[in-house]
Design a protein around this nucleic acid. Structure first.
Lengths: 208, 208
DNA sequence: AAAAATTAATCAATCGATTAATTAAATTTG
DNA sequence: CAAATTTAATTAATCGATTGATTAATTTTT
């Protein structure tokens, strides 16, 4: 592909991702995407087959990116506690960068209108799920962790993230005292989030 | 109002709430609402002024219902621990009944496209927020609870609920091993959720 | 008879998508 | 290398369908 072709494709992908995340799938018109990206509407269908094809392409882009990232974590020869902390750190560190696409995915999954997209999203999210599950199960097997309702614990971890990302207005009310739209995910809050999740897991998996 | 008028209004409200929760605001057409409710499209504008007015009416209905429910909890002369458990029990017990409207609210808040609706939602959700905050702060003040990052703890509680309601496909994967659309919020799961939240709060607020 | 409720028909606007025509780039050929 | 040809990329215009909303006429209730 030439540089121009890549430019056009990537510009559409980048603009569309932001608009989809801000407005949702239905409220984002192909005309708006084309206008903001500075390209003709037909290019959107030319490259991606249509609005839904573009949506899938955005998810698949992050899907492959995320797959590469996930591979080299669980191979290390460290304790279950350290694995847990590494996972939480990397999980929280990724939040700022992947905020748009995550908001997008959870909205889409919540509605479950487009089954093809839904399958993609579930496949992507289940990767994280399996990874943390394995860390905990291994820890239980080697006696580091107690046998507890780890699924609920995992639900609380992912849920806390969703609350900060997808319910940011009311989360701002909780953390800042007002529900405006200033940036909630400050570095300070992410540090607090890491400490909180580590503490929660540690207490739950050992002191119970 | 006559019985017929009430029937028509309430039928529209009930049908629209389900459709909005299932499809989202944009994907739910006024024609579909009218068809499912068995009324003329014009009735929707006649009673509610339009699609968005209907949306607001649905929220306000739950808004007032919820306000009545919230009043008589915090007056009891019980310990902070018991208040916490009462709150969690009532919070979880309300999940099944309010699942549709809660899914709807969090989707709407996540997109934040309609500021009038957003204000309503934030006002409604902040009631729960203030209530649990007061319980914890009182507990800290009277020495029952440790001084901890209670805001993060609250975020985890609300987040866990959102995860079960709005991310139900991947939550089903976590709890049932498959991501189908069978009912996730079984009585058994709600019991587990209660136990988990109580344990999480107790550990966090005392053993840290 | 007056008011309220309901209906059918239609409005302009916007949607995603597609077409045919045009320009730019790449490839082949002499 | 350069002209000719083919392919790729882009544009403007338009398609039918659907959207939320409204109107005027009709039926029902008071």
């Amino acid at each position: 592909m030439t540089d121009n072709r890549l430019d056009t494709k990537n510009k559409i992908l980048a603009i569309a991702e932001g608009l989809f995340a801000d407005l949702g799938f239905d409220a984002t018109s192909t005309r708006l995407i084309a206008k903001e990206a500075g390209v003709n509407i037909a290019m959107l269908h030319y490259y991606f087959g249509g609005k839904e094809g573009l949506y899938v392409a955005i998810l698949e882009k992050h899907f492959t990116e995320n797959r590469l990232r996930l591979q080299n974590i669980n191979n290390d020869n460290i304790s279950s506690f350290e694995k847990l902390e590494v996972f939480i750190d990397s999980y929280v560190d990724n939040m700022k960068r992947t905020r748009s696409i995550q908001r997008l995915m959870y909205i889409e999954m919540s509605l479950s209108l487009r089954s093809k997209l839904n399958d993609h999203i579930i496949e992507l999210l289940s990767k994280n799920l399996q990874q943390i599950k394995k860390i905990i199960e291994d820890g239980v097997a080697n006696g580091t962790f107690n046998k507890v309702d780890s699924d609920m614990l995992i639900a609380s971890m992912f849920g806390t993230k969703i609350y900060l990302i997808n319910a940011s207005p009311v989360a701002s009310l909780l953390f800042n005292g007002h529900a405006n739209n200033e940036e909630l995910l400050t570095d300070e809050l992410l540090v607090r989030l890491k400490a909180h999740l580590k503490k929660m897991f540690k207490l739950y998996l050992t002191k119970s």
